[in-house]
Write a protein that binds this DNA or RNA. Structure first.
Lengths: 169, 169
DNA sequence: AGTTTCCGCTTGCACTTTACAAGCAGTCTT
DNA sequence: AAGACTGCTTGTAAAGTGCAAGCGGAAACT
C-alpha cells in the first residue's frame, strides 16, 4: 500500500476505515465466530458473501487474522485473531462507549458495551488474555470476560422482554 | 440513514467508518484548523476539495461539527466541534496508540499519540475541557494539552534532526 | 472604480469500492 | 449415489473516492 501520511491515526484509518473491517473483527472477537459460515450466518448486519470474503482476505494480508484449516474438516477454514487484532480491544471499547452515548443503540447490545466500558483497562486486559487463550493457544485465564458480557446482554434482553416498549417493535 | 443494526460498534462504524471522517476530525481537534481553507491547506494527506466539502457536510448532518460564519469576514465559515465530537478523544487516543504500536508511524506524529496515550484518562479529560473552551465557549482550563502535544512533537522533530537516519529520507 | 486575489465550494470524469443475487467446485453426510 | 454443506466467485448496478478545472461572491489592492 502506498501510505497517505505517517500520522498514526491516519494509518489506523487506512487499515480499519471502511464499513466492514471493524464489524467483522467485532464478530470474531466478541462472538467468537471462527469460520466463514459462522461469521456470515450470525452477522447482525447481513454482510454479503463477497464482501466477507474480501474482508477476510484483507484482514489476513494486514496481519489481523490468520487462517488455518480445520483438522477434522478439510474444507473448513478457522480464522484466529493475531496480537495485532487483540490489541484493538481498547479501540472497540471506546467506539462502543461512544456509540452507546451518542447513537441509537439497542439496549441489549448497548449492555455489552456499557459493561466493557465500566470494566475499564483491567477488564480489557483480562479480555485480551482470554482472547490470547482462544486464538493464540495461551493458557486459560481465570476470568471469562466473554461470559460476563454475555450475562450483561442476557440481563438486558430479559429486561426488555419484561418491560417491552413501543420503540422495540 | 437506514441502520444496519443497533450494535453500538456498528453504529459508530456507520458514522465514522470511511477513509476521511476521522482524519478531518483529527485536523480540527488536534490542529485547531477551523476553516475549509485551513483544513485543506494543512492536510497532511492532501484531501481533495470535493471530498472535504462532502465530509464537512456529512459531519455537520451527523451533529459532529457546526458551521458558523466569521463575523468580520462574511465568506469565511468557522467550523466547531460539538460535544459529540469532543467525546471522541478516547477513540482518537486508542486509535493513535494502536497505530503507533503496529503501523509504520513517523516519529514526530507518533510522539503526539504516545504522549496522549501516556497521559491516560486524566489527560483526555483535560484535553476535552480545552476543546470545550476552544469550540463551545467554555471557560479556559488551566492546562493546555494541545501545547503539551505540540512540545512532544517538536522534541521528536528536533531529535530526528539531530540524529537523522537513512529511513527518514 | 476596476482589477485581482481570496474563499468556499461545485462540476465533470474516471476509477474503485460496496451491494445484492446467483452460481459453483470440492467435501462431507446419508 | 444423492443431497447438503462450505467457502467462496461471478455478474451487474449503485455508491464512494480521486483528480483537475472552474465558478460566484466577497475582500483587498491600486
Amino acid at each position: 500500500m502506498d501510505l497517505r501520511s505517517g500520522c498514526p491515526i491516519n494509518l489506523s484509518v487506512e487499515v480499519l476505515g471502511d464499513r466492514w473491517s471493524l464489524v467483522v473483527l467485532r464478530d470474531i472477537m466478541f462472538g467468537n465466530f471462527r469460520t466463514y459460515g459462522d461469521i456470515h450466518g450470525h452477522s447482525l448486519e447481513g454482510i454479503a458473501t463477497n464482501i466477507l470474503a474480501s474482508r477476510l482476505k484483507r484482514l489476513t494480508d494486514e496481519g489481523l487474522i490468520v487462517a488455518a484449516s480445520d483438522p477434522g474438516h478439510k474444507q473448513r477454514t478457522i480464522y484466529s485473531l493475531t496480537e495485532k487484532a487483540i490489541a484493538l480491544v481498547p479501540v472497540m471499547a471506546a467506539l462502543g462507549a461512544w456509540g452507546v452515548r451518542f447513537l441509537p443503540a439497542s439496549p441489549q447490545f448497548a449492555a455489552r458495551s456499557i459493561a466493557l466500558d465500566a470494566g475499564g483497562p483491567a477488564m480489557w486486559a483480562d479480555f485480551m488474555d482470554e482472547l490470547r487463550h482462544l486464538h493464540l493457544g495461551a493458557p486459560a485465564p481465570a476470568r471469562s470476560v466473554l461470559a460476563e458480557l454475555e450475562r450483561a446482554y442476557r440481563a438486558a434482553a430479559d429486561a426488555a422482554d419484561l418491560h417491552p416498549s413501543a420503540s422495540d417493535d
